[in-house]
């Protein structure tokens, strides 16, 4: 517990290290941020909004007025920008959890494989081919 606090303090006070969560920096696992307690707190509003997209009526309301919908859930500037840009990596760093982000990307007919492709910096077809090759 003490070491985790030290690492977190060191991480967030070092301007060249972008801390995402406790003991986790952007470069540790490229494209992946373990969803720990710190990230859960950070991303609460964002995940709450994405959870609302389980409902088709809410998805439609979001598309009618994105700014108003995001404001309703109290997204911070980082989260609002990531949503605006449909940027999966930025959404993850802003505390988004993939189970809820999948409901946001579903609005744009993007699936979890599209998320994976963004995380690995590949096209969807290249990502699917990589999965297939790994299974052989």
């Amino acid at each position: 517990m003490y070491h985790a606090s030290l690492a977190y303090t060191a991480a967030i006070s070092n301007p060249s290290v972008q801390a995402v969560g406790v003991n986790v920096t952007v470069d540790d696992i490229p494209g992946t941020y373990p969803f720990d307690g710190v990230l859960a707190q950070k991303g609460y509003a964002l995940n709450k909004m994405c959870y609302s997209f389980n409902d088709a009526a809410n998805r439609a309301e979001f598309l009618r007025d994105e700014d108003a919908y995001c404001a309703k859930f109290g997204l911070n500037a980082e989260q609002r920008e990531a949503i605006r840009n449909r940027d999966v990596l930025a959404l993850l760093a802003a505390g988004g959890n993939v189970y809820y982000l999948a409901k946001f990307t579903g609005i744009f007919k993007l699936g979890v494989q599209d998320i994976g492709a963004q995380q690995t910096g590949m096209s969807l077809d290249a990502f699917k081919a990589k999965l297939k090759a790994a299974a052989s």
Binding site: C50, F53, N54, D55, A56, R59, A102, K103, F104, G106, I107, K109, G111
Partner: peptide, 14 residues
């Protein structure tokens, strides 16, 4: 689950 019946959900993408 204790309901008599279950059905799959929308899952966010219809």
């Amino acid at each position: 689950g204790a309901a008599p019946e279950y059905q799959n959900a929308d899952e966010g993408w219809g």
